[in-house]
Amino acid sequence: MIELYILLIFMIIGAIVAIEVKDLLSSVVAVGAVGLGLSIAFLILKAPDVAITQLVVEILCLIILIRATLKKDLPFSTSGRWFFNSLITAGFLTIFLFMAAEALQQLPKFGQPIMRVASTYLQQGLSETGAANLVSSVILDFRAYDTLGEATVLFTAVIGVLTLVRRIGRKKIGEKVKAEDE
């Protein structure tokens, strides 16, 4: 369990570096380090499915972030009202820490989950679906509605991105547009 704590400390340090560093590229690299640490943490907790997905999505996000932010300085605004802002921040931190402390006491102990529904899946997953990978049998058979919703979310996200960043608006009937503009 000690390696998990080392990884968590590494990820927290990486997140703080990502916030505090001035250079945008260094910040993106620090975010990537946090994601890598998270995927190793999933591996230590014996969840290889999630680890693979986390790793590849992290790489993709890193490529997009680097390509999109390279050689581009975003303006950083530190306007007045710092007293008001830090007061609100401290207030919300206190509320969230209090809520988290209350909620964490109700949770089951780490590594000993409540196995009401999950034990049924573990015992009957192989015979009911025939899939050797139980994660796959859960996301595509027992809980396939979730996957359908997730696919819809991704579809909507792609349509939204393509709509927001396109350069030309709606075409008039019969209007021709250069191919490179699309």
Partner: peptide, 21 residues
């Protein structure tokens, strides 16, 4: 091999997209 070994449609699709990227 998503139903036999770790992985699956999402991770495999992202890796395929990464090869084109």
């Amino acid at each position: 091999h998503g139903h036999i070994s770790p992985g699956g449609g999402f991770a495999g699709g992202v890796i395929v997209a990464l090869s084109f990227i």
